[in-house]
């Protein structure tokens, strides 16, 4: 960790960051170009001399983009809140209580989190169709449980395990029941872990594509990824609007990542590293 960073290092770093950010940069620059400059001679010019926000206006005026944003927010929020709530109890039990079959249960959770979505889609599709849940929020929240719940349990278990056991012993000594210990001792200490888990589950639900594509096909219920992907017409692709829409969904993510990068990294890497 004490290795010194030389000038060559910063050059390498700059090149790497440039490669990672280049597509975004280009999309950002394209989103403020007038439509005529997206094609032909001007297509490869970095900067436009006539910056305009017409693509941004068009995204909201000509497409139900606000609606997509709202749908995604509703579906991802409800999915996150309910799965993290259910998972918190299960994860507490697996991480802190003694009972037979714990390892098997955790193994099952991990296995399910690796299920390919395509293997569950036909029965789930038939199910939501039968109960009239296509084109509804519930029609997505139910299938999203398939990946959100195992992910939450897996992450929360690793966070719960990091809380010192002494505290629990002390609470037990003082005569607290396991549930009291959970609510008064463990949960307050696990808040950062629960928060991290929520961020990751939210991102996963926000980005989900396959279920959203097959189940919510009506304009009114499309989520952002599907909505944007379906901007493309049969023969033409509205690149101006697409660039603007991409910028609009990316900016909040960039802010979120800047704010919570430490947490996100700890969540992504927990469970994969033996400490």
């Amino acid at each position: 960790m004490s290795k010194k960073a030389g000038p060559l290092f910063y050059v390498c770093l700059a090149v790497f960051i440039f490669f990672v950010m280049f597509p975004f940069l280009w999309i950002l620059l394209s989103s403020v170009k007038p439509l005529s400059e997206l094609f032909g001679d001007h297509a490869f010019q970095w900067f436009t001399s006539h910056p305009t926000f017409e693509s941004y206006v068009s995204v909201f005026v000509n497409y139900p983009f606000l609606r997509y944003l709202w749908n995604s927010t509703v579906v991802a929020t409800i999915t996150t809140v309910y799965t993290v709530f259910v998972a918190a109890f299960a994860a507490y039990a697996i991480a802190r209580l003694e009972f037979k079959g714990k390892a098997v249960i955790l193994g099952l959770v991990l296995a399910v989190s690796m299920f390919p979505q395509i293997a569950t889609i036909s029965p789930i599709y038939m199910f939501v169709k039968k109960f009239g849940l296509t084109n509804s929020y519930l029609g997505l929240i139910i299938p999203y449980t398939t990946f959100a719940l195992p992910l939450s349990i897996w992450l929360l278990v690793t966070f719960f395990r990091k809380i010192p056991f002494d505290l629990e012993e002390a609470a037990k000594m003082d005569g607290a029941t396991p549930m009291q210990t959970y609510f008064k001792v463990i949960l307050p200490l696990a808040v950062p872990g629960v928060f991290t888990t929520s961020i990751l589950v939210f991102i996963a639900a926000w980005n989900e594509f396959l279920f959203a594509l097959t189940i919510n096909t009506a304009e009114k219920y499309k989520t952002v990824p599907v909505g944007i992907a379906m901007f493309q017409g049969q023969y033409t692709i509205p690149w101006g609007e697409l660039s603007a829409a991409t910028v609009i969904v990316t900016v909040p993510l960039v802010i979120m990542v800047l704010l919570f990068q430490r947490r996100i990294v700890s969540g992504l890497t927990s469970g994969s590293v033996k400490e």
């Binding site: 960051i17 975004f24 594509f209 952002v224 944007i228 991409t246 990316t250 960039v254 979120m256 990542v257």
Partner: peptide
């Protein structure tokens, strides 16, 4: 943070990009 951005944006959106 810069590293995390490609990971965080929806795959469908990055594919369009």
């Amino acid at each position: 943070a810069a590293i995390l951005v490609p990971w965080a944006i929806p795959t469908a959106v990055s594919a369009l990009m």
